[in-house]
Structures are given as C-alpha cells and as structure tokens.
C-alpha cells in the first residue's frame, strides 16, 4: 500500500484504524460493551469484545443462549449501538454514526440472512431481491438485471416470479441470500441460516456459503450448532458477554 498517493476513500478510512490492526480488516471492535436496563436491573450482554475479522474470512460466532451472540450480531449488523467501546466496519466508525448513516451502512456494507428468511410475503422473489437496491436509489432497469443475476447465482432463475409462499424453505433462504448479496456487501451476516431447514437443505445452503466464500465473500455465521460451525474457518466462542475461545479450524470433510 502506498498511502501518500492513495485517493481511494476506503483505503483512506482504513488508514485511520487503530495501530497494529491489519489494513484489510473488515470488522474491528475495541472493548465493545452493551448493557440493557431491565426494570431496576442492568444486564451486561457484552462486557468488552475485542474482535478483528479480515477480508475473506469465514467466521462462526458461537455460544449458548444468553452468551451475548445475538447482541454481538446486532452490533456487527449495525442494528444496535454499543453503550461503550468502538466498532469499525470496513473502516467506518460505526459507533459515531447517526440513524440515517447507519441505514446507509446496512444497505451498502451488510447482507443479512435470517433464520426466518424475512422475505416480504406479498412481493415476488425478484422484487424481494430488488429491495436493497431500491433503498440504494438504483434505477429500476439496472435493479432488475442485478436482481436476476443474483437469483441466477443462487440457482433460482426459474423461480424469479414466485412469491415466498410458493417456494420451499431452501428456496426462500436462497432468495434471502441473493437479496443479501445483491448490493455487494463487505460482509454476509447470517443468523442461524439453517435453523428452519431440514438437514439436506441445510447442507445445500452451507455448500452455497462455501462457494461464496471461495469466490471471496466475507461471511459471518451466528449459530449454536457445532456441525454448522465446522464449515467456517474460524470459530469465536462467546460466554457471558466475553470471547471465551477464538480458534482457527480446518474445513470439515
């Protein structure tokens, strides 16, 4: 990298990351904390998370319920703001941003895949995939082309004009993945993506993730199932709001 002549804004942002952090880090958190007021009690969901995820990593975030993994996922997905600490996403200082900027970050940098798919029931597969581009302000012709391309990538070209209730669970999740990828996000953030699927379909979805990872996509998978997590190259185990273990793993055969 030649910082003196760089004009690229992403590179410029990256240069402002903390000392000693690799310049290709997509996610950097420092002492990330999140506390909730539950009546008179204060619940500390996250108690100081230091996490760095570099470009083209495949990370599984694991932990039992109550470990804080959902809170961490919301934080990484810019759906929630930390009570304390810092978080850079692709160089953006997320903890400093306002509502509208967060909406923009979610739109550009993050592709969500949910356990319950979260497709709009009245919209066709194509329209669902178009949705992030609508909020990006892309003209409709380019949108349709890009959405068709994304559906093609997940193998759903022939189901483009079907509504979610006319699709199987696996197909719905593929639509959701196509929707997540269509704005070319920095990270694909999947929350128990196979939780509502049978084992055969789950395998197909995970195979799709592997394939996307091979193409260079950064993937963060939140799960509590070990055999799902084994598809990742790195496992981050949470317990009581702290990182318990952070281990590199070999791909399961």
């Amino acid at each position: 990298m030649t910082p003196a002549t760089v004009t690229d804004s992403t590179a410029a942002r990256m240069a402002k990351l903390p000392e000693g952090v690799p310049r290709d880090s997509i996610i950097v958190t420092r002492n990330l904390r999140r506390a909730y007021e539950m009546g008179s009690e204060t619940v500390h969901a996250l108690r100081g998370i230091d996490l760095t995820i570099r470009r083209n990593e495949f990370v599984a975030i694991m932990g039992p319920s109550g470990s804080g993994k959902s809170t961490l996922m919301n934080m990484i997905g810019c759906l929630d703001s930390p009570t304390e600490g810092q978080y850079w996403l692709n160089g953006h200082p997320v903890w400093e941003l306002g509502d509208n900027e967060l909406a923009r970050i979610r739109n550009k940098e993050i592709g969500f895949v949910f356990q319950t798919f979260n497709l709009l029931p009245r919209a066709t597969a194509l329209q669902n995939v178009e949705l992030p581009m609508v909020y990006a302000g892309m003209p409709s012709k380019r949108r349709r082309e890009a959405a068709a391309g994304a559906l093609d990538r997940v193998g759903l070209t022939d189901r483009m004009h079907h509504r979610p209730n006319e699709l199987s669970g696996g197909q719905r999740q593929r639509v959701a993945i196509a929707r997540a990828l269509v704005n070319l996000p920095s990270i694909l953030l999947a929350d128990e993506p196979t939780g509502n699927l049978d084992s055969k379909t789950s395998a197909e979805i995970l195979e799709l993730f592997e394939h996307l990872f091979d193409e260079g996509q950064t993937i963060i998978l939140v799960t509590h199932e070990h055999d799902i997590a084994e598809h990742a190259r790195r496992q981050v185990h949470l317990l009581d709001g702290l990182i318990e273990r952070d281990i590199a793993t070999e791909k399961a055969t």
Binding site: A103, R104, R106, F112, N118, L119, P132, Y135, A136
Partner: peptide, 16 residues
Amino acid sequence: TREIGIRKALGATRAN
C-alpha cells in the same frame, strides 16, 4: 411490524 423491520434492516431510513 415485521415488514418495517425488514425494510429498515435492508437500508430504509426513518424518513423512507
């Protein structure tokens, strides 16, 4: 409510 949640997660602003 859920539709609103989805739209916001995908980048809709409050104004949208």
